[in-house]
Simulated scan of single mutants.
Amino acid sequence: MRIMEMRKRLVFRVDDLGYTPAYDMGAYRAFDCGVASSADVMFDSPDTIAALYWLKDKPWLSIGWHRHLWESPVLPPEEVPSLVDEKGRFKWGHRHPERMQEATYEEALKEFDAQMKLCYSILGKYPDVANVKNSDLPLEKAFKAIVEKYGIAYNIFSSAPDHRHPMVCDPQYKDLRYYSSGLATNSSYKLEDFKDYNPLEKMMSLQWTEAEEVFLYGWHPGYCDDHIMEESTCNIHRCKELQACTSETFKNWIIENQIELVNQRDVLNGTHEFQDHLKAIGSPLWIGNFK
């Protein structure tokens, strides 16, 4: 194996796992091709349980808590009335975030706890990571309380200069130099701009500047269906992201640039779980193959 002057580590995270069966079917392709190393799960979505069962026998993947809160609570709606509308769905969705202030701390705490109990009942563990907002909103305080209750690492990212959502990094993780790259974001998800959307170009534009720098890419590779078309502005863009990350062009870019794919536990704990998996399956993306 060639000794590299700069260690280029990358976590390729698939966001929104559990969204719908169609989306997840595509997302699984991103994992199966060996590129994706981390799964961010939405615990309130139509395909959550099936996605958790799919993840159960894949310990080489790290799990993130993608706190969605657009769909329906795990608990019966009557147990969390301050969180739901007349249809039993979270009352704010993605169009009315101001309604989050109507959620009581006690009911939000119950719902977040139920989501983690669902996770543990299938995976036998809790998520590895989460992102917690610094807010006085009862909903946000409840989320932080549950994240801390179950020992989930949070706010582990430092702010990358190109990220449009600045991160508040917990001081204990500052030395990781772990950056969530804004290169994975798109300025417009309007359908009229879709023709100009080129995720592959963005995926291959990442550059490391320090020997121990680690980057995370968060993408939405998967298929689209009527539910996603109705609910999300990021819809058919998901198909193009799937095509990009599973392409031979992207894999060759990883190999040619000697990029070490890792999961989020590897970053936190200094382990080599994902690379060990790539080696075990004989993947060309195993860093030991790079010459």
Rank of each mutant, 00 (worst) to 15 (best):
R9K: 15
E273F: 00
A36C: 15
Q101S: 15
Y179N: 00
D136P: 01
A130N: 06
E71L: 05
K251C: 09
H163L: 05
H68T: 07
I146V: 15
D40W: 14
A30P: 04
P46L: 11
F112L: 03
Y105M: 08
R99S: 09
C239L: 13
G64S: 08
Q101I: 15
K58Q: 13
I281R: 02
L206Q: 06
E210Y: 15
E210V: 05
N269F: 10
Y53P: 00
W208H: 02
L118V: 07
A142L: 09
L268W: 06
E260F: 00
Y53M: 01
Y19T: 15
E86P: 00
D128W: 02
D47W: 11
M167T: 07
W219Y: 12
K91A: 11
S232T: 05
M204A: 03
N155Y: 09
G222R: 02
P76Y: 09
D226V: 07
Y189A: 08
G64Q: 11
P166H: 04
I281E: 02
T249H: 09
E192T: 13
N257F: 06
G282V: 11
G151L: 06
L61Y: 09
G222V: 08
W286S: 03
F215C: 01
K117Q: 13
K56W: 04
F12N: 02
R29L: 14
C224M: 11
G288N: 02
S188A: 02
R7M: 12
T246N: 04
H237W: 10
V11F: 01
L55P: 03
K195V: 14
A280H: 12
K190H: 11
I254S: 03
R13T: 12
C119Q: 00
P284C: 11
R2F: 04
K141F: 08
A50V: 01
I3S: 11
S188N: 06
G182Q: 07
V168W: 04
W286I: 01
C234P: 01
K174L: 14
K87G: 09
N252Q: 14
E98S: 15
D85H: 12
S37N: 00
Q101D: 13
W219A: 06
